Simulated scan of single mutants.
Amino acid sequence: MEQVELGGLAVSAEGLGCMGMSSVYGAADWDESVAVVRRALDLGVTLIDTADAYGLGHNEVLVGRALAGRRDEAQIATKTGMDFTTGRGRLVVRNDPERIKAAADASLLRLGTDRIDLYYLHRVDPEVPLEESVGALAELVAEGKVRAIGLSEVTGEQLRAAYAVHPIAAVQSEYSLWTRDPETTVADAARELGVGLVAYSPLGRGFLTGTVEAGALAAGDARRRLARFAEDAAAANRSIAQAAARIAEARGATAGQVALAWVAAQAPRLGVPVVPIPGTKRLRWVEENAAALGVRLTDEDLAVLDGLAGQVVGARY
């Protein structure tokens, strides 16, 4: 698979999001999840994305086990800052320097490695100056524990403030056919600074594949609480997946592959490297996703796909 540069870090042009292997989308099988990570490596997908919040550390342990014996084939991206340990599912964002450093050591232990290739602030802590949080990350780089720094879900102003402390390799944001927020919130700053965009949920949390029936989601599936998956909204949004499916049929591809190909194709327009990281816990989907970057979309295809975001019913959260 083609390589992309994120702040001097060479990664695969498509990554693998591992969150669903441990949380959010219902039950997952450990053995198959491990097999998915290893199959991704076989297919040339080397950017493996996790976080200490996914499954309260479970996901990092899983990724570490999956990469045992193959660590040098992968670039591990993990995150810190989201604290779900306060009980009752309550999220607290904590990015004080002491916690960041302790969290990095804990992540290294769970992952079974001596370095994190790309370490993100999962969210910005409003109670801690961003410059202090990035300063702590910079110290981890100086210590050799982290190779490159990233931020998740930030504005252009926040990116510039962070970059003034230490170079930022990538911003991770939700970005897809039906979520275009980064184009107006952070893309200009990323282009000016040479920062890449890592696109999470590039398949619209599975909806854009046309294979997800919103009304049939399992009780433990967090998508049941999202506005776009509510009954009326999902029915209206189905036309977006159908539009991708029509193009897919003409290209000998699937709707999901078209959705991923569209995300990757935005790099020249945005002027930044764009790396989609579709998540899956199934072998069949990791193989399909890895083939998506081979789909070539015409200018006519792109014009149709570009207009779909304006049809979305329901807020992102």
Rank of each mutant, 00 (worst) to 15 (best):
A248C: 05
S239N: 04
A148P: 00
K145P: 13
A27C: 09
V45D: 04
L177D: 01
L137I: 14
S173Q: 04
A190C: 03
V171W: 00
D301A: 11
A216S: 14
T86V: 15
G15T: 08
L217E: 00
A104H: 12
A10H: 05
D232Q: 14
E231Q: 12
E157W: 09
G196V: 00
V312A: 14
S173Y: 02
L159F: 05
A187H: 01
E132L: 15
G57H: 09
A236E: 15
G196N: 00
I76K: 09
V295W: 06
V295P: 13
G81W: 05
T254Q: 08
L91I: 13
L293Q: 10
E143R: 15
Q266D: 01
L217Y: 04
L305P: 11
T155Y: 08
T298L: 10
Y25R: 07
I48P: 06
I240F: 04
G204P: 02
V313R: 15
L305C: 13
A187K: 01
L9Y: 03
D306N: 15
E153M: 11
G204M: 03
A245W: 03
S33R: 14
A142G: 14
T78A: 13
Q75S: 09
V272F: 01
V141W: 03
P126S: 14
G156W: 07
G294D: 11
P182C: 01
F207I: 03
R316S: 08
R284C: 02
V124F: 10
V124Q: 10
N59L: 10
G144Q: 10
G156M: 07
Y175M: 02
L260Q: 03
A164Q: 13
V124A: 13
G150Q: 06
G314H: 10
L217G: 03
Y175P: 02
N95Y: 08
A138S: 15
S12Y: 02
L16R: 10
R284T: 12
V165G: 05
A265P: 04
R251A: 08
G210H: 01
A222I: 06
T78C: 07
H122I: 13
W178Q: 04
D299G: 11
E153L: 09
I277T: 06
L283W: 12
T50L: 01
R225S: 04
M82E: 13
A199N: 01
L197Y: 00
D105N: 14
A190D: 00
L62T: 11
A189F: 01
A261Y: 06
D232N: 09
D49W: 02
G26V: 07
L226S: 00
M1T: 09
P167E: 03
A27I: 09
K145T: 14
I277S: 02
L62S: 07
E127T: 15
A142P: 09
R225Y: 00
R269V: 06
I247K: 07
N95K: 13
L293C: 08
N289R: 07
L91G: 12
L56P: 12
V312N: 13
T179I: 05
V258W: 06
E153V: 12
G20M: 08
D52L: 06
L293W: 07
L16I: 12
T113E: 05
W262V: 05
E60S: 09
H122F: 04
S152C: 12
A51T: 13
T78G: 11
A103L: 07
Q266M: 05
L308D: 05
T46Q: 05
E157L: 14
G220K: 06
Y200M: 00
A222T: 08
D117F: 02
D306M: 10
H166K: 07
R71W: 05
A13G: 09
V272H: 03
L270E: 02
L109K: 15
